[in-house]
Simulated assay, not measured.
Amino acid sequence: MNMHMLTELAEKGEIRELELLSLEGGFYIARVRLEHTELTLLDDHAKPMRIGSTTHLRDLLQRVPPFPCVLVQHCVHDEMCGTREGPIGALRIPFSLEASF
């Protein structure tokens, strides 16, 4: 999914949620959840778009109608140490695309 397609889907109200996934190396990628599928936001070279922060994402989407967003951070320490029993879920923090001051 490119920015043009994301904008069109947002205008139609078809985006259920955007997950901003934190990855090793200090950057993020965006996964867009629709009714029956999930798509990765791609750059002009059809590669996953590298996003630097929630502020960077807000700048990219400033002209796009708002939709629900969540920052997803996996806890590598828990996965490595295995201190908890049962499945380990990611930390999910909702945030808004509106500028915060």
Score class of each variant (00 low, 15 high):
Glu11Trp: 02
Arg92Tyr: 08
Ile15Glu: 09
Thr54Ile: 13
Arg16Gln: 10
His36Ile: 00
Phe101Val: 07
Leu6Val: 05
Gly13Ala: 13
Ala90Trp: 03
Gly25Ala: 08
Pro94Ala: 12
Ile15Arg: 04
Glu35Asn: 14
Val64Asn: 01
Ser22Met: 14
His74Trp: 01
Thr7Gln: 11
Phe67His: 06
Leu91Thr: 10
Ser53Leu: 09
Phe27Ile: 00
Leu9Asn: 09
Asp44Pro: 02
Gly89Trp: 13
His77Glu: 13
Pro48Cys: 05
Asp43Gln: 08
Leu61Ala: 07
Glu19Arg: 15
Val72Lys: 07
Cys75Ser: 14
Arg33Lys: 14
His77Thr: 08
Gly26Thr: 01
Leu23Met: 07
Leu6Lys: 01
Ile29Glu: 14
Leu39Trp: 01
His77Cys: 01
Gly13Asp: 07
Thr37Tyr: 00
Gly89Lys: 13
Pro87Ala: 13
Glu85Gln: 10
Val32Pro: 06
Ala30Gly: 07
Val72Pro: 08
Arg63Trp: 03
Asp44Phe: 12
Gln62Trp: 00
Thr7Gly: 03
Gly25Asn: 10
Pro48Glu: 00
Ile29Met: 06
Glu35Thr: 13
Glu14Tyr: 02
Met3Asp: 04
Cys69Trp: 03
His77Phe: 10
Leu57Met: 05
Met80Lys: 13
Gln73Tyr: 08
Phe95Thr: 10
Pro94Leu: 14
Pro87Phe: 10
Leu91Arg: 15
Pro94Trp: 14
Leu60Gly: 01
Met49Trp: 14
Arg58Phe: 01
Glu8Asn: 06
Leu71Pro: 02
Glu17Thr: 11
Pro66Leu: 03
Leu21Glu: 10
Asp59Lys: 14
Arg92Gln: 14
Pro48Gln: 08
Ser100Met: 11
Pro94Arg: 14
Leu9Ser: 09
Gly86Met: 04
Asp44Tyr: 08
Pro48Arg: 08
Leu18Arg: 04
Leu6Asn: 02
Thr37Met: 12
Ile51Phe: 02
Ser53Ala: 06
Pro66Phe: 02
Pro48Lys: 06
Val32Ser: 03
Glu8Ser: 12
Ala90Val: 03
Cys75Leu: 09
Gly52Pro: 00
Arg84Tyr: 11
Cys75Ala: 11
His36Leu: 09
Ala99Leu: 08
Glu85Ser: 09
Leu97Asn: 10
Met1Pro: 02
Glu79Lys: 11
Leu57Trp: 01
Asp43Tyr: 05
Lys12Gly: 00
Leu91Cys: 04
Ser53Pro: 08
Met80Val: 11
Thr55Ala: 12
His45Thr: 12
Leu97Met: 11
Glu85Thr: 11
Arg33Gln: 13
Ile15Gln: 05
Met80Asp: 12
Pro48Ser: 04
His4Asp: 10
Thr37Asp: 11
Arg16Phe: 09
Leu57Tyr: 05
Leu9Val: 05
Ala46Arg: 14
Leu42Val: 14
Val72Met: 09
Pro68Asn: 06
Leu42Ala: 06
Glu14Ala: 08
Ser100Val: 12
